[in-house]
Amino acid sequence: MTLSDVKPGKSYTVLKLRDSGATRRRIMDMGITKGARITVDKVAPLGDPVDLTVRGYHLSLRKEDLGKIEVAAV
């Protein structure tokens, strides 16, 4: 399961990041690494991007990039 399939209000653990390149590295730098806990908070008014809580702060990412983050429900 990836983060793009998940529902707001739930928490997940990161298993793996697919893909490669600059965006992936930036996402990792922001704290989305293997084992990190992520809570999906809400979706933007136009359906994208998504507001997440990771490592105690709010980060927003597009669904397209969320689809590259494999997670498991906590």
């Binding site: 965006t23 996402i27 709010h58 990412l61 397209e64």
Partner: peptide, 10 residues
């Protein structure tokens, strides 16, 4: 390609 968007919401 589309511009990436990775944004902190302070």
């Amino acid at each position: 390609k589309v511009t990436p968007y990775v944004m902190e919401l302070p």
